[in-house]
Write a protein that binds this DNA or RNA. Sequence first.
DNA 1: AATAATTTTTAGATTAGCCTAAAATTATTT
DNA 2: AAATAATTTTAGGCTAATCTAAAAATTATT
Lengths: 221, 221
Amino acid sequence: MYSFAEENYLKAIYKLQEHSDLAVNTNSIATSIQTKAASVTDMIKKLSDKKLLKYEKYKGVELTNLGKKIAIETVRKHRLWETFLHDKLKFAWDEVHDIAEQLEHIKSSELIDKLDEYLGFPTHDPHGDPIPGRNGVIIQSNFVLLSELKVGESGVISGVVNHSSVFLKHLEKNGLTLGKKVQVKEIGEFDQLVQLLLSTKESILVSNEVVKNILVKIQYS
Amino acid sequence: MYSFAEENYLKAIYKLQEHSDLAVNTNSIATSIQTKAASVTDMIKKLSDKKLLKYEKYKGVELTNLGKKIAIETVRKHRLWETFLHDKLKFAWDEVHDIAEQLEHIKSSELIDKLDEYLGFPTHDPHGDPIPGRNGVIIQSNFVLLSELKVGESGVISGVVNHSSVFLKHLEKNGLTLGKKVQVKEIGEFDQLVQLLLSTKESILVSNEVVKNILVKIQYS
DNA sequence: AATAATTTTTAGATTAGCCTAAAATTATTT
DNA sequence: AAATAATTTTAGGCTAATCTAAAAATTATT
């Protein structure tokens, strides 16, 4: 059984090494977990002793298979709880993260499997992130940044890069929620503002910063 | 915000003082929380500093209104989560306690209110224990021990005194679950074995130890 | 009322997780 | 390649929650 802190470290390291197979360095862990480098060094020594990661002084860390397993289980719990909070308890998508950060540490594999079943074995959480299966397999969706679309192209909003509450609220206010179809109408040459056509025929103008943080599934028509 | 340990102490003290208005002594807390008396002394000093209880050396403790409030909130959370686990996730009534012990410490009043609503504002948990309301009010039901019934009298099973898994499993096996109507048919003069008539017309024989741990709502016919 | 038994508290340690400040190592400039 | 900058580790401390063993206080017994 692992502590809350241990699970948080494993999850943070997992996310840092996810999109690059280099060793994860101390400072980046410290930043991502909002703590000090000295604390990170303490903890990675402990995790190394427990065979959850490989650690070489001054050379960063890499999760072992065991460490990766625990990290993925924690991500699975987090995303299932987020789905529960959103789908069943009707929390807004910007409200689910903080509560799920607590719920993800509840110890009971039976609980999480029953929750999974109760939710109908969802594949993605309220932000479009994939939910790892019981077996730890994560189905990678081939989503693309909305900023990659050219004028005239369409896509269905399927995820977000930025998970901050302020960004999610902004999307909500503009009707840019998961499942919505958008078409790029025009991209401002001077300021890169993007005009989007929604399926409601409504047309909205959003900044480049917004489209760079939205993931879409391309629609070929 | 209170720690898990603090909430557990408050809950334990609350339950010990619930059915007697004497001060709660150190040893009984230690026993109920499965720790040592020295640890209890340490903790009650801290809780006393935080105005959660009144403590006089060698004379036991009494919760303040604030302490009682936190304790009741924790009980409310525990019982709502038990209800969720049983009603929605279909856990057996002997399986819900341990998981709820963890879930009761999740910090979010919005969460617990939404859960309450989602469950349809239940008044009792899967063991028949009353669920405190948002306001902290606990509706006391006037249940009676099944062992108090005389031959010929009937009642509806509404709660249990013993919450142990082995006892609950035993009841389940005998069809003695919440809501079931039972009539006392005969009480053995020699060994006090009780013959119960179920509404299925089935007749079962149970020990005195069993009827002493079942609460019923008397049925006047 | 004195002694014995029990309960409670204190004293002193331990572990997990975090911190600051200083030292050690590695990376980057000039 | 030496000097400077940045990163990482170590050393030493802190707090929360626990423990054991010993001392103090209370309660029960003779």
